[in-house]
Nucleic acid binder design. Structure first.
Lengths: 143, 143
DNA sequence: GTACATGCAAATGATTTGCACAAGA
DNA sequence: TCTTGTGCAAATCATTTGCATGTAC
């Protein structure tokens, strides 16, 4: 047993690349392991720094390029929270929203069936079909 | 009677600047009128182009600087929808969320008391206090 | 007159891209 | 081998800022 999540693990990410006829390079292997291993939402620079510890030859461009292909394959999710740079997380199949801790930058995931449903109702009333949505709560720990 | 909204009109915007001891310059007057007059959500460049028609000497920097002070005074809202640059709208006092038409870029405003309430409940359950939030629906017109 | 505002150009920060070389399949 | 990937530097995009000059109050 491992503490790695069932989905979004290195194997799933590798499969996403392989399935598209893309290559598993030494640097991609490192990046995928970091993505799959962590349970936070790192940005490109954080990913780059962590990767560089294992392989100092990795470049920031490669991190960005890898994020782009993984996103195109639906293997990861890209989030752009207020202010900061894009942050990434392995796609876990189940959609969820985010609560961002304004003090620490920490991201807490949550999911509300009722909110999802209400969103659909609203879109329908306005004559629209939802393609995607984003719901982000920004707050601080209650004392 | 005017088709200008009750709130977020030129007068409100001017008041926001005056109240902070700031000056109403020729270029600010033009920008404020455009913001107050339109009912869309223009980005800095769009604002700049419209302003330049009335006063070709206006610079993009001034648009950005004006957006910054107005935002600091709470007179306008800045939105960063997926992808694109920041877009602005006069603050109308009542909070609302947005549905973005993926084909036209058009922004439709809506408000759901029930969603607002659910968000508060969720944050509370997670031990947080919401400072702000953003809910954006991206979709296309239903045929 | 004096502090605040402006235009311009240069700086910034995040991200992307062109190119010559390297390396998976 | 042949195509895809990489590092590096330069380019791009949105936005900000330094500075000398202009102007609202």
């Amino acid at each position: 047993m491992t503490d790695r999540r069932d989905n979004g693990g290195t194997d799933d990410l590798e499969a996403a690349l392989r399935g598209a006829g893309l290559r598993i390079t030494r640097q991609r292997r490192v990046i995928l392991a970091i993505l799959a291993g962590g349970d936070d939402h790192p940005d490109a620079l954080a990913l780059f720094r962590r990767a560089a510890r294992q392989d100092p030859s990795i470049s920031l461009s490669t991190v960005y390029r890898t994020m782009k292909v993984l996103e195109e394959r639906g293997a990861i999710q890209r989030h752009t929270f207020e202010g900061g740079p894009a942050r990434f997380e392995p796609a876990d199949g189940v959609h969820h929203d985010h609560l961002i801790d304004l003090d620490s930058g920490e991201v807490i995931e949550f999911r509300s069936e009722r909110i999802e449903k209400l969103q659909d109702e609203i879109a329908r009333e306005l004559g629209y079909e939802i393609v995607s949505h984003r719901l982000e709560l920004y707050g601080r720990r209650r004392k």
